[in-house]
């Protein structure tokens, strides 16, 4: 079964008020790999992920996680499945309960599944903080005492608390500064390698998707317009929309950038 994909999404549909926000979306995701889901805001990429995670109820299609029909699960079996799939959001501070300490934030998932006793949980918190490159000294801090990068590391640690196999990274680095973003991206790749994680990496930024993802699916208006392995997508984008996304990425080269901006005025 080593070749069976970990996640298989087939013809997923989600409507809001009669409008198809996710329209017939299909993809598969192999174990230990990263699928980049790229598109502009409103393209339906986050909604797709939320349907997969059962944070929203899909209106059609199917989601198979390790062979299990995710959309059919109810109550306890669904809660058990949640241990295996986790999520990290864009806004580092928004995704942490500002009334809790880092320790409380990290033990909450363990408590929700009745894992470990007091001592075991404290040990796990220290281990998790170490894993994401924060020292144990952070356990008693409150979210507002953390920088954006530190808060996002805490959010990553929380996602890893239950030892999931699959993590959705929903614009997880988009709100971070350049240097912090680079650190967090490096951390994510390192964690993937060490823990054998499978990522669904959602971003509006093709440059970052190119760095992170093995497979890329480009979404527009709720549909996947192009899906290819990374190398092929960036060498020969087939869809015009993909090409326009690639052209829009700013390059840290004044000559090139300013020439493009002047050209656009004609």
């Amino acid at each position: 079964m080593a070749d069976a994909p970990l996640l298989e999404v087939r013809s997923l549909v989600k409507q809001f008020g009669g409008r198809r926000v996710v329209d017939d979306v299909s993809f598969t995701l192999a174990r230990g790999e990263t699928l980049g889901l790229v598109g502009e805001s409103g393209s339906g990429k986050s909604t797709t992920a939320r349907c997969v995670l059962r944070m929203l109820e899909a209106d059609g299609g199917s989601v198979l996680f390790d062979g299990e029909d995710v959309l059919a699960l109810r109550r306890e079996p669904l809660r058990r499945l949640r241990r295996r799939m986790q999520v990290v959001f864009q806004d580092p501070h928004g995704s942490l309960n500002r009334r809790s300490s880092v320790e409380q934030i990290l033990t909450a998932p363990l408590a929700a599944h009745g894992l470990g006793d007091r001592a075991a949980r404290a040990a796990r918190v220290a281990e998790l903080l170490e894993l994401v490159g924060l020292g144990g000294g952070y356990a008693q801090r409150r979210p507002r005492e953390l920088s954006g990068g530190q808060a996002q590391r805490v959010a990553i640690a929380r996602a890893l608390a239950l030892e999931p196999e699959f993590v959705v990274l929903d614009e997880a680095v988009s709100a971070l500064d350049v240097s912090v973003r680079a650190q967090v991206l490096n951390l994510l790749t390192q964690l993937q390698r060490e823990l054998g994680l499978t990522y669904l990496f959602i971003s509006h930024d093709l440059a970052i998707v190119r760095y992170m993802a093995h497979q890329v699916a480009v979404m527009r208006h709720g549909r996947v317009v192009e899906a290819q392995p990374r190398t092929r997508l960036f060498e020969q984008p087939r869809h015009e929309y993909t090409r326009s996304l690639m052209d829009a990425i700013p390059v840290a080269d004044p000559d090139l950038e300013q020439a493009r901006i002047l050209a656009a005025r004609e």
Partner: peptide, 21 residues
């Protein structure tokens, strides 16, 4: 808010969602 979504995602029970979040 995302912290609530995260709690749903890790499988927090309703009581916890209510009292702790």
């Amino acid at each position: 808010r995302d912290y609530y979504a995260a709690a749903v995602a890790y499988g927090a029970r309703r009581r916890r969602l209510l009292l702790a979040e």
